[in-house]
Design a protein around this nucleic acid. Structure first.
Lengths: 225, 225
DNA sequence: AGCGATCTTGACGGATCCTTAACGCGCAGC
DNA sequence: GCTGCGCGTTAAGGATCCGTCAAGATCGCT
């Protein structure tokens, strides 16, 4: 049975979705703000996520980022009509689809089916361990085995997250810039050089001789596991 | 570069999309009815498909079915506002997203990025193994079974990629030059000689007596599996 | 308003890579 | 044997890319 998590602060919408989804034999759980929503995602591991952007406690794109850091669960965003740039921001943050309120229930259900259908069956392992340090994507924490926890800035963390999620694979500069800074920064390869250096300084046992954060000249970077 | 195929019968939309997509460095091809659209999908193998449902010759859902029969290329559907059941039908037929006209270009571009981002990795055989080395196209890595990984420059990698994708087949010099260096370099067969030699030096057990990267005099090269 | 942390931006030396030209070799035609 | 052509090989320059540093600019918090 497909499990759906709905994150919305309006009781009426929550109720309507619960009724309709349950009737189609989905398994529904709910949360009414961003923080408890993120906790619920980590706890329940739903197959698909319906997220209202108008949450009281945090910005919607931050919720998306929080999920996308370690999970590829499909995310369908709900929001009021007309916020074009908000729409773009949500999709670029990693949302899979965007439905404007008021919405037709049939359309939402169809988009739900489409999202579940194409969902990647890859259940990512949210924690990675090397001889020198450990990265936990779900909790957003990295600690070196020798000394204790390592403090990363938000940008550093995002960059590391993308590389670790694609561990072993070569990640293009374009892709890194796009996922961390946004599609408008595709050519600012300067940023990459600066932040890769900072990550190496904080993680590598020998920053000048990188063992994990490898650079492939002219192409991009690779996290070697 | 991401290749987009637009199937639409309205010249104005075709033109607007072509301009905007080209400006974002997408590679755009177009078709103006369903039949030629399906042919174009089979021929061009686009990375993503933008499909108008109001085509003159056939029903939109039939086009979707025609594509989904053999390809999982993401499909973004365009249509006029208000046809709720059509929307549901298109999504259930296998479309990935649905945008109503008139649409904001920024939104469409964002949905395009989202569709490409979550696209399933190519169903091609992404890894090729020979007695002497292994080429993994998905991860962009090649390693010799005797010694460890081999470092390839961007150009070397591109060239090898084209040859491996067409393994067993003869690839024309023209085609190689065009795919690696661009259409303006079709006559610079010098480059090929230089880079084929470099690949042989890095991959062949006996670079002077090639076993995998074969020369077809006067024609081109062939990767022998 | 002030302060610290973080992000952006520019500049530089050094490493890497691409381009280009030259030369040798084998082969076919004259 | 001579010549022209295509291919393999090599090496040198010039362009590009990368790592590094540090000085503003910006942000968040008190």
């Amino acid at each position: 049975m497909t499990r759906v998590l709905v994150i919305d602060d309006e009781p009426s919408i929550l109720r309507a979705l619960r009724i309709n989804l349950t009737a189609r034999s989905y398994e529904v759980s709910t949360a009414s703000d961003g923080a408890s929503g993120l906790a619920a995602v980590a706890r329940d591991r739903p197959d698909v996520l319906i997220l209202d952007l108008g949450l009281p406690d945090m910005d919607g794109t931050d919720v998306i980022h929080g999920v996308r850091g370690w999970s590829s669960t499909p995310i369908i965003v709900l929001s009021v009509w007309g916020q074009e740039n908000q729409k773009v921001a949500a999709l670029d943050a990693g949302a899979d689809d965007y439905v404007t309120k008021p919405f037709g229930m049939d359309e939402l259900l169809a988009r739900l089916r489409a999202a579940v259908r194409r969902a990647a069956p890859a259940p990512d392992e949210p924690v990675l361990t090397t001889p020198d340090f450990t990265v936990d994507l779900a909790v957003k924490r990295v600690s070196r085995t020798a000394d204790g926890d390592v403090r990363l800035t938000p940008t550093e963390w995002q960059l590391l997250e993308v590389l670790v999620r694609n561990r072993g694979r070569l990640v293009t500069q374009r892709q890194l810039l796009q996922e961390v800074w946004g599609p408008a920064y595709e050519t600012e390869s300067n940023y990459l050089r600066v932040y890769i250096a900072q990550l190496r300084r904080k993680l590598e046992p020998e920053p000048s001789r990188p063992r994990y954060l490898l650079t492939e000249p002219g192409m991009g970077y690779r996290f070697q596991a």
